[in-house]
Design a protein around this nucleic acid. Sequence first.
RNA 1: GUCCCCAUCGUCUAGUCGGCCUAGGACAUCACUCUUUCAAGGUGAAAACACGGGUUCGAAUCCCGUUGGGGACACCA
Length: 491
Amino acid sequence: MNGKPKVRVRFAPSPTGFLHVGGLRTALYNFLFARKHGGTFILRIEDTDRTRYVEGALENLIEVLTWAGLDYDEGPVKGGPFAPYVQSQRLEIYRQHAQSLLETGKAYRCFCTPERLEAMRKEQVRHRVPSKYDRTCLKLEPSEIEGKLQQGVPYAVRMKMPEGRRIRFHDIIREEVEILSDQLDDQVLLKSDGYPTYHLANVVDDHLMEITHVIRGEEWLSSVPKHILLYEHFGWQPPKFAHLPLLLNPDKSKLSKRQGDVAVEDYRAKGYLKEALINFVALLGWNPGDEREVFTLPELIDEFSLERVGKSGAIFDIKKLDWLNFEHLRRKPDSQILAMLKESLSASSLEKKEFDDAYLLNVVGAMRDRVVFVKDFIEKSPYFFQAPSHYERETLKKRWKRETPEQLKKFVEAISRLERPQKEDYEVALNRTAEALGIAPGKLIHPVRLAVSGMGAGPGLYDILFILGKDETIRRIKSAIERLSKGHPSE
RNA sequence: GUCCCCAUCGUCUAGUCGGCCUAGGACAUCACUCUUUCAAGGUGAAAACACGGGUUCGAAUCCCGUUGGGGACACCA
């Protein structure tokens, strides 16, 4: 009941076909801020550039946001009190606002052709003067304007920038920022095709949708004065601003395609968990102030504050993302990993894709400290899903000796006699066999591992044998003896 | 070029508005440990306040400048 307005924030992407990880972070910070303050998180689509229209981009965007767990309260499809939330469906609203600026003399019509503007800019660049619109159309007589309108000459609406104004504003992250209005161009607000530019649409919508905090990327910082002026012209109170530092490529340029993956979907496809990606991206520019680093979404909501967002750009370091993926994966209960493993299995190129839950759970237990991704269960321990097709050359060289086949035969004999062997039974059998042969257990352990898995690394041998089971173990050892005895085939 | 923003280990960063910082943590790297292998775990090492001036008894922390990096300068967002 007290005067504090309810927090309303928006994530306002333009639908270019995929969600950029930088966009994911912007969305996340907006989301966290809203949830933290019991506010509203709005999704608004800024599709005012018809030349960049991408089929299905909206659906894709919503799908990815939903996957990440960033549910919006108002927006396209879902609707809300300020619908529509897609700018291309709000053209009339922008037209009216542009009209009112025209009437109050804060804006004017510009009939210049793109060609003329292009030539003008070139000229300005050549003379090394700041490239700004030369205000040709501001000097038009009312009769001339009338004439052009009569003839149906297409025009854009330009904002008339005041001269000599010092525009100062407060940014939650950057503190005080000051820009001279002389630097500002007479920005086009309404394009000749009737669509608004970002600046007009953004300001109008933020006001109409009662946005209290504009949280967006730093690339917008230098546009704020234009926006402030617009709010002023309309007689509106501007929202609070928070400009986030940029996400950078390893070479410190603005994160972009070409230097790796930038689409959230790329990371999803590679097997990153949403928990890890969200956690990682949250830490790029923000930290809780203590030493904790692994967070779930609810924990982030609890801890988040814009005041703790840093000012400098952050390089997207995939190594740390991998580590977070590992951390989040290992925190998941076996049952959940099991479900993901099954999915991974059915998508794999394995011949056999169906396994008992109990069997898979054993695999999960044996491998969970050794994998970063769910798909690693298959890639790092394929032998749990199919018999080895070849044996690692290096390991073979190191562990497989001339006398090995005979020794393994003894081990096979020993375990053949076992009834429903447990882990420990394999261990006892191996130790006894080694003892009988008068050799160290290692002389058997390594060849057995190689025989059943084809590799030199993995979980404890007895775990592997137990998981594979007696019959399969014997089969694989015999097969290895057969294949590796003649000559010394390495691959 | 003009304007704006930024500046602590290779990377993400702590550093609550000057003293407790001989600069802390994490990832990555290396070593040791554990161990039948590989991981995980444990222990430890190496690794940074861009530079120059101030202000102050005292500066990573405040001010100025330099350098470096980035962003914005469209009828794209």
